[in-house]
């Protein structure tokens, strides 16, 4: 592998550009696949210059997804940063998908049965419990749990945060990655054929 930019020739550059385009395609298709996943935040892919040439860097996009009214009181949407904490069999999980329900023991869980964690452990509530905008869950006036949220974040009950993926934007990203890949491949091919000539035709021993 070339160690520094100086060691890279055209082919190395184009190979790295193709790898980066491939990574960008992977990010775009992953985003596209999650266009209907509630609470999903799109992953942003940016190109960066590294000692190994071009590379795609993934970072979470903090843009808020749209808020969709559902009318179910246990559907919770977060307005602002922060996540819900769930305890699963494989340890803690963080999610922004607030499609919750009560299990038969009265605990607040997600669709897969993982319990939602409040500031002091799992939250147990009755049918009449109300989730306040500050994340405090009251059951007949008594506080049964507080969602651990960063200051400034509010909770909306009866609504869900839709995926922040914009299908048109991601389709565009798919096409852009495809074209970038093809461009790099064409250039790679041009250098390759030039080199082919240099190696095989120039100074051929007859």
């Amino acid at each position: 592998m070339p160690g520094t930019l100086g060691d890279m020739d055209g082919m190395d550059w184009m190979a790295s550009a193709m790898r980066a385009a491939q990574a960008q395609l992977e990010t775009a298709t992953h985003n596209l696949a999650n266009v209907a996943s509630d609470g999903y935040r799109r992953v942003r892919s940016t190109l960066a210059l590294t000692p190994q040439g071009l590379a795609a860097r993934e970072s979470p996009d903090p843009t808020q997804g749209g808020i969709r009214e559902t009318g179910r009181p246990l559907d919770l949407a977060l307005l602002g940063p922060g996540t819900f904490r769930l305890s699963g069999p494989q340890g803690g999980v963080e999610t922004r998908n607030g499609a919750f329900q009560r299990d038969r023991e009265g605990y607040l869980t997600d669709q897969q049965g993982r319990r939602v964690q409040g500031r002091s452990g799992p939250i147990r509530l009755s049918e009449t419990a109300v989730v306040g905008t500050d994340g405090t869950i009251r059951d007949a006036g008594r506080v049964v749990g507080v969602l651990p949220l960063p200051p400034g974040t509010t909770v909306r009950s009866g609504a869900l945060e839709s995926s922040s993926v914009d299908a048109i934007g991601e389709t565009l990203a798919v096409l852009t990655a495809q074209r970038a890949f093809e461009t790099a491949q064409k250039t790679y091919g041009a250098i390759d054929s030039a080199r082919d000539k240099a190696v095989n035709d120039v100074g051929r021993l007859k």
């Binding site: 385009a21 298709t29 389709t171 990655a177 790679y188």
Partner: peptide, 25 residues
């Protein structure tokens, strides 16, 4: 849902195309 399906189909197509070129190289 239909539009999202089509967009994902586009993704499959692009991945397929790139795989073909990659294989050729």
């Amino acid at each position: 849902a239909q539009r999202a399906y089509e967009a994902n189909a586009k993704g499959v197509q692009a991945a397929d195309e790139m795989q073909r070129i990659g294989l050729k190289i």
